[in-house]
Structures are given as structure tokens and as C-alpha cells.
Nucleic acid binder design. Structure first.
Lengths: 251, 251
DNA sequence: TCGAAGAATATGTACGATGTATTGACGAGA
DNA sequence: TCTCGTCAATACATCGTACATATTCTTCGA
């Protein structure tokens, strides 16, 4: 790989060091490459590897590789032991709700399975969060919810665009936080991944679905009038509809 | 293996006491100290710190601090910018599901709040997992569920003991995995925390509640006969009862 | 007063050196 | 032949140093 070779050359010669891409940090790049590789199954569970190999292959220093491996370890994807090296752990041990892992799974062959599983998770969590939000949301949160819905309506003619997506993400993120439960709020990043992934998979129509918009408004209104059951019902309908879109995909 | 499960294995006679994993590695020690400090609020959100200070204070090199900070960053607890240093992010951005964060919260003053939030999460997730398991669980999983219930019955006279707790944990863990959804399965460790924590808080009676045992059996039976709705109903009753116990605690 | 150039600073990255736990080979003894 | 202890090799663990780079702060000039 020429990039790696270039990086190695650059580090050997003192003056012309390779200029790294501005916004991207090396350890983030390493982490991303390694994570994607493990999730995709290119490195099977139980495989034992040596950190130095990764560093050499990717043209990065031990420092960068170590930092990436440390994160992979905290994600439960690898275990590190002296002398033995780095062992890939079975996928059942992974922190499946970590945004990074979700993103990697959405990027690979298992993306439809991941989307479906995320839908099932949403179906369980989001109605419950809506029910809680109806009793705990303060004025600021209610206003934010309404504003997010309004933005969705505004950009309804480009439902597959970035503005609509941003409003949709803001709606669900606001609601999860408004539930007052930090566990639910912690799912924000994961929910965001599925919404972004859905748009990237081109599952969104050009024009927003009337029913979907109405349901979002219904959730916001129900929370405003503190009707938890109605909020949960409408949210259930939202995630059910989203799951149907995923289900319609060809496996 | 999770901390909770390990503790269960280690002690059969008394309530397992979760100890701080003897972090033999410096960066694990740093991570643990920093994480606990942030979660406890000793370093408030928005605070800007310098990595070198932490290193000097804890007597560790910059390398070790960097690795710990990298993990904290992946947990959403801090953001790192050049020159600006390390900024503590608001708790709403944290990955509340990370075992580390749950452990830190259970260790500090927010222990009871954390337990209550875990109950709310269970109420949302476990009935859904039971419904899924009814249609996807294979023979092995069904047998494991039945065996776990049987163990609970066997140790019903010591419902506040380690054996009953272990069977209870095994029941819920098996069910979550049997759902066939890796996101639900990934919540196993977190669910374990609340079960162990409930016993530690001495919320369990000496003799197991008749109703609770019957409900667990009902879940297992419903899953065996593929009755998803009945399984979800019974599981809802289980978590509702568990939540009442937590609610009774003084905040 | 304002803006641009430069200094200061904290993180980003690389690498060498040394410590150390773990492994696996090897050989002695039963 | 088998078992067990010893020892060398290995790969991570940690520290320290050096330099790059981005961001902020300061200073100075128009």
C-alpha cells in the first residue's frame, strides 16, 4: 500500500514528514480501520495478532496503534495480554450499542440485520421514553420538540436531504433527553446512527410521508399536554413505520 | 466475564461484593480514577483541564494519561482539542450503557438514581426481548430458561443469597440472548448490574416471593409455547414488581 | 480601535529504551 | 515416556524525549 509506505518513508527521513489530513487524527483513522476490519469478519474471533503488524501495515506508530487498541478493548472487541498479543473477542462480548460498532456494522454486509435490530430496540425504548417525557419534560424541552417538528415540516419536500435528517435527529434526541433517564439519553447516538444510516441507504422518499409528519406532531402535542399514553402510542407508530421501511429492503 | 458474574462466581455464601478490579495497568488505574472523578461531579461539565496536570498528579506519564483520555473520549465523557485541552462534556452526552460508567455511578452518590433508571430501562427492554424470544428461541435456550427457573425455585428459601441471585441473573441473561437481537443481548451486563445491585441494597426478602417465581415460570412456559404476548405480559409484571422495590428506597 | 502577524501553549505523533509478564522450548529427573 | 522446573524469547507496558501542528493569546502597526 503506497500510503503506508509513504508514511514510513516520511517518518524515516527527518525533514519531509508526510502532512496528515487536517481534521483527521491518526489514531482515529487506525481505530476506524481496525474496527471495520474486525466487524466485517476479516479478522475472525479468536485470532491472535501483534500490534506491531498493524502499525507497520497502516503506517502508524505504536503510540497511535496503542490508543486505538485501548478503545477497542473498552468496546469489548479485543483483549490484550502480554506476550500473547491482541485477541479478537467473540461478537457476543462486544458493546453492541456503542455508536462506533453500530456504524461499522451499518457500513458492512450486516447493515440490514443491524438496521432491523436497531428498529426492534427503538420499538422498545422510544415509546417508553415518550411516556416518561410526557411527565418530566420542561418548557424548554417541549419547545425544542415543537421546533424540531416544525423544521421537519419546513423541509418536508426534501425528506432525503440533510436538513430534514437534522431536524429528525434533533426531534428524537430531544425526546430521549427529555425522558429524564440518562440510560435513554445515552441511546441518542445510536438512534442518530440509524436515522443517518437510513438516509444514507436511500430509504427516505423525496417527499416526507404525511403520516410520519403527523405522528411526530402528535408526539410533541401529547407530551405538551402531558398525555403519556398518547405520546407512547404515536411513537410506537413512528418506529413501526420505520421498521416496515427497513423490512422492505432486499436481504 | 462481567464484574457482576465474576463476583457471583467468587462467593457462594454471602452477597457478592463487587470490588474495584485490581487494575494492574497504569492506564486502567488512571481511567478508573478520572472516570470516577468525572461521574461524581468533582470535575464539573464544561471544565477545561490539561492532560499534563492529571499525569503529574497521578504520577503517570503522558502516554498513560493519553490512553485513558482516549477511552474517556470514546465514552463521550470528554472532548479533546488542541491547545484548549480536555473539556468535560455534559452527562447527557455520555454513553450511559458503558459498564465502566454504570460502575462509576453505582459506586458514588448517584447509586439509587442509577438503579431506578436501570429499572425504567428494564421495563422498556425486557418485555420486548421476551416477545422476540418467544418466536426465535431454540431448544437449547428454552431448556436453559427452564433450568434457570428451576434453580430459582430450588434456592427460593434464600432469595437474598448468591445462588438465587445467580439463577435470576442467568434467567434474564439467557432470555436477552435468546431474543436473537444483539442489541438486547448487549444489555446483559447492564441488567446484571441492577439484579446484583438490588441484592446488595438488601431489597430481596429472605424467602422468594411466590408471585415472582410464578411469573418467571410463566415467562419460560410462554416462550416454550411461542406465546409472545403472554411472555411480554409476565415479564412486564416482573420488572414492575422489581421497580417497586427500588422505588421504595429513600432517595 | 481593529486586524494581522507572531509568540505561546497543549495536544498529536513518532521513536528509543527499558521493564515485565507470559509463553514455549529444553533438559533433568522419576 | 512423562512431568516439572528453568531459561530464553517475545510482545506488551511504561516512560521520556523530540518535534509537528493547530489553536489561542499577545503584540504591534495601520
Amino acid at each position: 500500500m503506497s500510503v503506508a509506505a509513504d508514511a514510513i518513508m516520511g517518518s524515516m527521513t527527518s525533514v519531509p514528514r508526510r502532512t496528515t489530513p487536517a481534521a483527521v487524527k491518526v489514531h482515529d483513522t487506525i481505530l476506524d480501520r481496525l474496527g471495520e476490519r474486525i466487524v466485517s469478519g476479516q479478522v475472525p474471533a479468536g485470532e491472535r495478532l501483534v500490534a506491531a503488524d498493524w502499525g507497520e501495515e497502516l503506517g502508524a506508530s505504536r503510540t497511535a496503534v496503542r490508543e486505538a487498541v485501548r478503545v477497542l478493548e473498552s468496546l469489548g472487541m479485543v483483549s490484550v495480554r502480554r506476550k500473547s498479543g491482541i485477541t479478537i473477542r467473540p461478537s457476543t462480548d462486544w458493546m453492541a450499542f456503542a455508536p462506533e460498532i453500530v456504524r461499522w456494522r451499518l457500513r458492512g454486509a450486516g447493515r440490514l440485520v443491524q438496521l432491523h435490530e436497531l428498529s426492534e430496540l427503538r420499538a422498545a425504548v422510544e415509546p417508553a421514553a415518550a411516556r416518561l417525557a410526557a411527565s418530566t419534560a420542561d418548557g424548554v424541552a417541549r419547545a425544542a420538540l415543537g421546533a424540531a417538528v416544525q423544521d421537519m415540516v419546513t423541509h418536508a419536500d426534501r425528506a432525503n436531504g440533510a436538513d430534514y435528517l437534522a431536524a429528525d435527529v434533533r426531534f428524537h434526541a430531544t425526546l430521549l433527553r427529555a425522558s429524564g433517564n440518562s440510560m435513554f439519553a445515552g441511546l441518542t447516538a445510536v438512534i442518530e446512527e440509524v436515522l443517518v444510516g437510513r438516509t444514507e441507504q436511500e430509504l427516505m422518499p423525496q417527499t416526507a410521508d404525511e403520516t410520519a409528519l403527523r405522528l411526530h406532531q402528535e408526539v410533541a402535542h401529547a407530551i405538551t399536554r402531558r398525555d403519556g399514553e398518547a405520546a407512547a402510542r404515536a411513537m410506537t407508530a413512528i418506529v413501526d413505520e420505520a421498521d416496515r421501511a427497513v423490512q422492505s429492503l432486499p436481504l
